[in-house]
């Protein structure tokens, strides 16, 4: 089976005052045509870094791909020239960011910000690009698109701005859409609308989706497959229903038990709401030859503290990097 995107043994290093830290350590995964996968994990686990590496947008002078390959459509993006990457960004791979309030340029109208990407990649004339921008605003369900195209970002709500971001990302009909916590900054009803919109647009265009989130509900709703990240490493990977039904990594189990469940009647006994004790280790500890989750794990044994866990496969599709995975 051919993959649209195949990441092989990716290692991303961040240069810091204390030395070099591997924020992504030996990450491999694949994304098929039209597939939807989700990266899950706490803040600081390297989810966003993975996305930025695919886009070729790692922070200049600080982050770099130390080793590994990112195959996109048969081309290694790690080795690609800046001009080539620019051609792919916003054209073949689109991205939406977490903060719709600040991700749009305050001094240009939203229509111009959409039309600009069409002019750049599709060579459309000013007039044609503007007409297409209005079509796109309509597609992301912004009412009165002709008049709203001339509006500036500060004249729009957070949800509307995120719709504009989606219109920009999808303007050139990319093969992959990367959504980095697209709804974190929005309130719950707007979140649901944005998810609906993304699902519909994906159905229409067949775009593959990489969604980064720490919201298990969003994963269950949007993704077919999920990858759980912890401290720059892949903890667990598998189809969403399988992983949620039977998580094979204590960190995944912890994340799932953090999600509150609604009960139908207040008289019912409610389960305690759990948390994963402790915090993600500091960057300085990344890359050590042990299980980085061990300090927060109830199952940790001597072996976890001395040897990095290998990936164990449970079926073709479900893998976990935990020494105790088989007993779970």
């Amino acid at each position: 089976m051919s993959f649209l995107l195949k990441v092989e043994n990716l290692r991303i290093e961040l240069r810091m005052r204390a030395g070099v830290a591997p924020v992504i350590d030996d990450l491999s995964f694949e994304l098929a045509h039209g597939e939807s996968i989700s990266f899950v994990g706490e803040s600081g686990c390297g989810k966003s870094m993975t996305a930025l590496a695919i886009m070729g947008l790692l922070p200049e002078g600080i982050g770099r791909v130390a080793s590994g390959k990112i195959w996109f459509d048969g081309e290694d993006l790690v080795a690609a020239s800046p001009a080539r990457l620019r051609h792919i960004r916003g054209n073949k791979i689109g991205m939406i960011f977490q903060e719709p309030m600040t991700s749009l340029n305050p001094v240009y109208s939203v229509g111009e910000q959409i039309a600009e990407v069409l002019r750049e990649h599709q060579g459309l004339s000013r007039k044609a690009a503007w007409a297409e921008a209005i079509e796109l605003l309509d597609a992301v369900r912004i009412p009165n698109p002709e008049t709203r195209a001339t509006a500036y970002p500060f004249e729009m709500s957070g949800g509307q701005r995120q719709r504009v971001m989606i219109a920009i990302a999808l303007a050139c009909k990319p093969k992959i859409l990367i959504a980095d916590e697209p709804t974190t900054a929005l309130d719950v009803t707007v979140q649901a609308q944005i998810f609906d919109l993304l699902r519909d647009l994906r159905r229409q265009t067949g775009t593959s989706l990489i969604m980064i989130t720490h919201d298990m509900g969003a994963v269950a709703e949007m993704a077919e497959r999920m990858i759980v990240m912890y401290a720059g490493r892949k903890a667990e990977e598998g189809p969403v229903d399988k992983v949620i039904a039977h998580a094979r990594h204590p960190y995944t189990q912890g994340l799932i038990s953090c999600v509150p469940h609604l009960v139908a009647h207040l008289t019912e006994e409610r389960q305690d709401l759990n948390e994963v004790p402790g915090i993600v280790p500091g960057l300085a500890e990344f890359g050590q030859g042990r299980c980085l989750f061990a300090s927060r794990c109830a199952r940790a044994t001597e072996r976890c503290l001395t040897t990095r866990p290998e990936e164990i496969a449970f079926s073709d599709v479900h893998r976990s990097a935990c020494w105790h995975a088989e007993g779970m």
């Binding site: 947008l57 620019r86 051609h87 600040t102 340029n105 001094v107 990407v117 920009i168």
Partner: peptide, 26 residues
């Protein structure tokens, strides 16, 4: 260093447009 400049880069715009159109006007 702002988010909208990152957006401009993610759009695949040339550096000249990122710097002079998106960053400088602000």
């Amino acid at each position: 260093g702002s988010d909208y400049v990152r957006t401009a880069k993610a759009k695949g715009l040339p550096m000249r447009s990122v710097v002079y159109k998106h960053a400088l006007k602000n």
